[in-house]
């Protein structure tokens, strides 16, 4: 018997279907598994994953994303706020860069001063050994940075003094930072002196450090390193007349931001002009600032 085959030749699934048969079959077949079977299978499925019914799961799913987004936003805002506050503090709450504490003026020679004496030419030793001039040196406004000032003010009296590098830095240039690092290294090598601001009598009967710090009032407890840096800066920038009519501070100000090569050129120039003494002082300062920089044969 020849069979008219509608599916012959293959084709998409629709061509293998008979809509009338499908309609009739769907009308005829309505059997369903019993409810107890449904319950048993669904319970087994839940037991397998150890989860709760969908109501709870869907609730958690629905709120998981909004809660996560809200948490991220809150954390971000908090972080940004904190960062803004931290960044604003040194500018908005820093005390004026001038007006060092009164106790700063009569600073006795400190270990740094001794070091400076060792480094500086003999002509300048007398000036450095003298107590610095009480006249405060106003630092240039744009260069003033007092990152640790707020910490000093807000710290408890018993808190340890901050590191010298974080105290007042009137010359925040790279050369100055290098010099301060060198100074710190030198101080570590030398026997540790007492803080310069502490009176001698107090030092002799000094209790352990925390108690001593408690005794000193917070403003007067400015670290000796900060005072030393300020006194040193004052010494360098004081308009002491130097040999040949030149002023060392003017020269240093001029060379402060210059590269080492410029310093060497200037020293050579001074020598050529017959200002050997000034050239020697500048050279000494150059050696302090750039201890690792090679010197020309004529300057060694």
């Amino acid at each position: 018997m020849a069979l008219k085959d509608p599916m012959r030749g293959g084709g998409p699934p629709q061509e293998h279907r008979d809509p009338r048969l499908t309609r009739l079959y769907r009308a005829a077949s309505g059997e369903e598994p019993p409810a107890r079977l449904d319950a048993a299978i669904l319970a087994a499925a839940r037991r397998e994953v150890g989860s709760r019914p969908r109501a709870v799961g869907s609730f958690l799913r629905a709120w998981r994303m909004p809660v996560a987004i809200a948490a991220v936003i809150v954390l971000s805002v908090s972080l940004v706020t904190l960062m803004m506050e931290e960044g604003r503090d040194p500018i908005s709450e820093a005390p004026p860069p001038v007006a060092p504490p009164a106790a700063e003026a009569p600073v006795p020679p400190s270990a740094d001063a001794v070091k400076e004496l060792r480094d500086a030419p003999s002509k300048e030793r007398a000036a450095v050994a003298q107590p610095p001039v009480a006249k405060p040196e106003p630092a240039p406004a744009p260069r003033v940075s007092v990152p640790g000032s707020r910490g000093l003010e807000s710290k408890e009296p018993g808190a340890p003094a901050p590191a010298p590098a974080k105290t007042a830095a009137p010359f925040p240039s790279a050369a100055q930072e290098q010099r301060q690092a060198d100074d710190a290294a030198g101080r570590r090598a030398l026997p540790q002196p007492e803080p310069a601001s502490a009176p001698r009598a107090d030092r002799e009967s000094a209790p352990p450090a925390p108690a001593r710090a408690l005794r000193a009032p917070p403003p007067a407890a400015a670290p000796a390193e900060a005072a030393r840096a300020r006194s040193e800066a004052g010494a360098l920038r004081s308009d002491r007349p130097l040999a040949g009519g030149l002023q060392k501070s003017a020269l240093l100000s001029e060379l402060e931001r210059e590269p080492p090569e410029k310093w060497l050129e200037r020293i050579e120039e001074l020598r050529r002009q017959g200002e050997a003494a000034v050239a020697g002082e500048v050279l000494a300062e150059f050696k302090r600032r750039f201890p690792n920089h090679p010197l020309p044969a004529g300057l060694r």
Partner: peptide, 18 residues
């Protein structure tokens, strides 16, 4: 681990498979 997904899947195919 989502048992609710199995519920939906089961309800789709329970009649036909049975």
């Amino acid at each position: 681990g989502d048992a609710g997904a199995f519920d939906a899947l089961y309800r789709r195919h329970r009649g036909g498979l049975y």
